[in-house]
Amino acid sequence: MSRALVIAAHPDDAEFSFGGTVARLVDAGTEVTYVVVTDGAQGGDDPRQPVGELVAIRRAEQCDAAKLLGVTDVTFLGFADGSVADSPALRLALTREIRRTRPDVVLTHQPMRSLQFPVGASHPDHLAVGEAALNAVYPFARNPRAFPELLAEGLSAHPVSEVWMPGYEYTDFLVNVDDTAERKVMAILAHRSQFGGAGDPRSEIQWVVDRMTAYGAQLGCSYAEGLKRIVVDGGLQLLPATS
């Protein structure tokens, strides 16, 4: 595949959900772009910290994390953290980004709540962004009559072949990330503001490694990421050593 677009609700969501897969795509020559929907303003434990200061920190951390995975194109839409809805405004913004980047595959959040995984996986912003992203993929990005203002911007309709999202209890697609698992961990740790001052930050995300290890055991490798694959328009020729 030539291009992939990651649509994430918050800074750090892309790394937690897809970090190993993103790095593998980049290594295979795929052009990967990030779109971060919210400003990340609620991602802090100090209520006295100025909003603008935290937003700036999280933007910088997201750019640093993306670079560790080989991604240099990061767009921030600036929607309010904690207040995202599958609104016409968000559908338009995501449709614009899909038509601008013209990806073969979109990686984004699940639009439904998981009842088996920790509740944090089903943050309401994740659910709203997942739903809006799917709606942007189909029907809006591929429909030349949708959002005519985008045609005026020179952004013609574009069909996305597939959508990948964290699999949780719906996992049907495992990606071998033996060569990129450590980069995923380092990219997560680049979000320094999200870790407490005491203790080893690596210990706080041991569950990430444990989950990759469990998926790897299913695939017959050391580390894997578990995704849900949705074929939208024709499907893709997948990377080797995936299942």
Rank of each mutant, 00 (worst) to 15 (best):
A217H: 14
A141W: 01
Q42M: 12
F140I: 03
A9G: 01
S114Y: 02
V137T: 08
Q110E: 10
K228R: 15
E153T: 12
A66D: 03
P240M: 11
W207F: 12
V55W: 03
P118S: 06
A9C: 07
A187I: 04
G78E: 07
L150W: 03
L238E: 08
T38C: 02
V6G: 02
I205Y: 02
R100G: 01
L25T: 01
F173M: 13
D45M: 10
V84G: 00
R59W: 04
L150Y: 02
T72P: 05
T30Q: 06
R99T: 05
K228A: 14
V209S: 08
D81Y: 03
V177W: 06
S222F: 12
V137P: 04
R58Y: 10
R142W: 04
I7S: 04
T72H: 13
A89T: 08
L90K: 10
Y170V: 11
A241E: 13
V106G: 06
E149C: 12
L25A: 01
A214R: 15
A4P: 07
T72Y: 00
P201T: 04
D45P: 04
P103R: 06
G120L: 15
G78Y: 07
G130A: 06
G29I: 05
E53G: 10
R59M: 06
A4F: 02
R102M: 13
F147S: 05
S122N: 06
F76C: 05
I230N: 10
S161Y: 00
R58C: 09
P88D: 09
P11A: 11
M186P: 05
E162W: 03
R192P: 01
I7G: 00
D12P: 03
D86K: 00
L94R: 03
V177S: 04
K228Y: 09
V37M: 04
T171L: 06
Q42K: 15
A224Y: 00
Q49P: 06
G196R: 07
R113I: 13
V74R: 07
E204V: 15
L134V: 00
T242N: 14
A93Q: 11
R24E: 03
E15W: 01
S193R: 04
A214S: 13
D46W: 10
D233M: 11
P103A: 13
L227S: 01
W207N: 07
P139Q: 09
R113C: 10
M212Y: 00
W207K: 10
R113H: 09
W207Q: 05
G52H: 09
G120R: 11
T21H: 01
D13R: 00
Q62Y: 03
L236D: 04
S122Q: 09
R59E: 15
A136Y: 02
Y223S: 13
G199S: 12
V231M: 14
D73G: 03
L155M: 14
Y168F: 14
A28E: 11
V106T: 08
D178H: 08
E162L: 12
V6E: 05
